[in-house]
């Protein structure tokens, strides 16, 4: 690539500007974890679908080693176990929207997942990549937090760690990458007559997912409005307007950007929450 042309703006900054790297293509999780261990002055990155990793590299990230996860066994399974869906981190968005088991056990989740991005993105992107990208506007972590999902990580020391989706924002971005831990699957409870609704019509201002269960418990998760999704638990009993006002009033200060101010985002959180809680009540158990 002619860097003079790039400097002059005649060529996209991203095009051809990715530095060469060592490629590792393991077939087992243990080998992927081992490959992530590099010398202190080197860096390594996992790559699943590649959408975000390539964007990061086009933006200047230059890992010395890239570990391609597409051949790793066990990352693309979908199964049901003990009342929960287990979705491999390497499962694509398109499979989530079309898989018969997910359609049977969590049709509302499959329907919400079908609204992500576009068909090219959904065929390449993975649920694990969506989580690990930690992009404030991505929908996966919002939906998974509302569903009470848990993320399963395999660590280089051989241990397995479980992280609740709604506490995932507490893990500092980069800490997971630095540790070399690998997200292998996502566990999503399917019992309890859970119903889920998702509204992304106001993206990139705010997105809201609300789930309620048959025992009167509810969870509301909001994306786009904060650096990471915010998830709040509530009791379904009260009036929808009151619940929405209480949740919206207690939210941390939403971000302010070219799309909307903080007050508008908070107001829209209340509006969408009331609308969705009302909708869930009308849907009935």
């Amino acid at each position: 690539m002619d860097h003079d042309l790039m400097e002059a703006g005649w060529v996209s900054r991203g095009h051809g500007s990715i530095a060469t790297f060592e490629l590792i293509r393991p077939t087992r999780v243990v080998d992927a974890l081992a490959a992530h261990r590099v010398a202190e002055d080197s860096s390594a990155a996992y790559m699943a679908g590649g959408i975000d990793q390539i964007n990061r590299m086009q933006d200047g990230a230059a890992p010395d080693r890239v570990i391609d996860l597409s051949r790793v066994q066990g990352l693309t399974g979908i199964s049901e176990k003990f009342g929960a869906l287990n979705i491999g981190a390497g499962v694509t968005h398109h499979r989530i929207e079309t898989d018969p088991m997910i359609a049977s056990l969590a049709p509302d989740l499959a329907a919400a997942w079908a609204t992500f991005g576009n068909i090219r993105v959904r065929m390449a992107g993975t649920i694990g990549g969506n989580i690990m990208a930690r992009h404030p506007n991505y929908d996966g972590p919002v939906l998974l937090a509302a569903c009470g999902a848990r993320y399963v990580f395999e660590k280089p020391d051989g241990m397995t760690s479980l992280i609740d989706a709604d506490s995932w924002p507490d893990v500092p971005p980069g800490a997971d990458a630095a540790s070399g831990a690998l997200l292998t699957r996502i566990v999503i409870p399917t019992g309890g007559d859970r119903r889920l609704v998702f509204d992304r019509s106001l993206k990139p201002v705010i997105s809201v997912a609300v789930a309620v269960d048959g025992n009167g418990g509810g969870r509301a998760a909001m994306g786009c409005a904060f650096a990471e999704p915010v998830c709040v638990a509530f009791d379904v009993g009260a009036n929808a307007g009151e619940i929405a006002a209480e949740i919206a009033g207690a939210l941390p200060v939403p971000i302010r950007d070219v799309f909307a101010g903080s007050d508008y985002r908070r107001r829209m959180a209340r509006v969408l929450l009331e609308r969705q809680i009302t909708l869930l009540a009308e849907m009935g158990p």
């Binding site: 095009h15 590649g50 959408i51 390539i54 068909i119 090219r120 065929m123 390449a124």
Partner: peptide
């Protein structure tokens, strides 16, 4: 599958 060849190694 439709694939963005500009963003596929």
């Amino acid at each position: 599958d439709p694939t963005a060849s500009c963003s596929t190694f």
